[in-house]
Design a protein around this nucleic acid. Sequence first.
DNA 1: AATGCCATTCTTGTATGGAAGGGCGGGTGA
DNA 2: TCACCCGCCCTTCCATACAAGAATGGCATT
Lengths: 225, 225
Amino acid sequence: MAATALENTKETIAMRVVDALRDDIITMALKPGDVISESDIAGRYGVSRQPVREAFIRLAQQGLLLIRPKRATVVKKISPLGVRQSRFIRESIEVEIIRRVAGQPSDDAADVLTKLIADQEAASEAGDSRRFHTLDELFHRTLARLAGVEYAWQLIDDHKMQLDRVRYLTLGVSSTQRAIAEHKQIVEAVAKADAAAAEMAMRAHLARAELLLNQTISDFPDFFE
Amino acid sequence: MAATALENTKETIAMRVVDALRDDIITMALKPGDVISESDIAGRYGVSRQPVREAFIRLAQQGLLLIRPKRATVVKKISPLGVRQSRFIRESIEVEIIRRVAGQPSDDAADVLTKLIADQEAASEAGDSRRFHTLDELFHRTLARLAGVEYAWQLIDDHKMQLDRVRYLTLGVSSTQRAIAEHKQIVEAVAKADAAAAEMAMRAHLARAELLLNQTISDFPDFFE
DNA sequence: AATGCCATTCTTGTATGGAAGGGCGGGTGA
DNA sequence: TCACCCGCCCTTCCATACAAGAATGGCATT
């Protein structure tokens, strides 16, 4: 049952519906496999079918919904294969990024990253896992910016939604301490301009997502294909 | 002026309009900067505005159109920055792919690739540049399949549309001979299971796109941002 | 009792009418 | 002559009505 209200003030109704539905899907208020219909959502939000329909189209292109012509629309189940290949894409790009950053070392790069890690430690000690997640994301996006390809992160972001659904199912489970230690290893390699070490550290860091995925599949088999 | 007819037989009108418009955009029948409207296209194809509107939404999400609320919709100009970063993404992924393929050499991998190159030579000698382009794409997709990440190619495909517009402007210019020689170098390295050499050959192969882009920008400045 | 058919009732797909907002040109005033 | 303002026209956006396919349940028939 979706609950997110349409209180934000985007330009069009369709955009508000997109945001509300995406939030409901990522936070599992709408579960993989749930069947929804245009008139259903329209009635729930007090709007007509038209903007809801357009929102469905957008979310379907983002891989969150499956529109079956003349049949009901369902919240897409999470595809383990898709998640793994998204991870492959992410690893490919992030490895290339970290090589670049370690290859052309700038003075303040390590400083900026070190400061971000300090914030992460603060969030971790405060037990604020939502904030930690945000900072973790910022850490990786900052690397992309330092490599001069922030645009590439937007791509990762698009494909990260699937993994975000997995992550939401395991909030609190992930060990923030370990992630922070791995971030430190990456920054150390960058500071020493050791591209090979940086690459290895990054691969190890991203490899943990695989474990998370396998754990989640066995915990919530109904949410996966 | 769009010309592609709606003769293909997809499920819905909206999908046919999507295909027709995308084809018109990639082949430059609709040029970057052209202004179009829902009723314009609807009248041209003899359908109502509704499916056209949905097609616009889909194409806008793919980065081919720019819908400006309450104002006209325009065919997006090509962003040199976007093309370069798409190339970065592609290089990151293809390098990772070629490493994998060279790393776990299978007997028939080199055979399959060699056969594809033979086809390319045939197409090149016949002067059939469209077919050569298709085979070139197949060569890269085959590499992805051999690495077990064919899904990743779909992603490259999505982002390749921008570059395809550039490529269409330079049909016949690109030297197929040189591309074939580079393909051969890649396959040789794969056959010898030399991952480093394969990576270098792939980077050199993809680097040529940069030259193509710069050439095209100076030839058709109006089509770029 | 079991099976096959048909109607009802969902769903999404399409068409069309009006509403709201932005751009542009003509007209008016200085 | 130049600048500003107002009205017209264009656009996308939203609402609603209708069409058509698909599934499901009941009913009739065997």
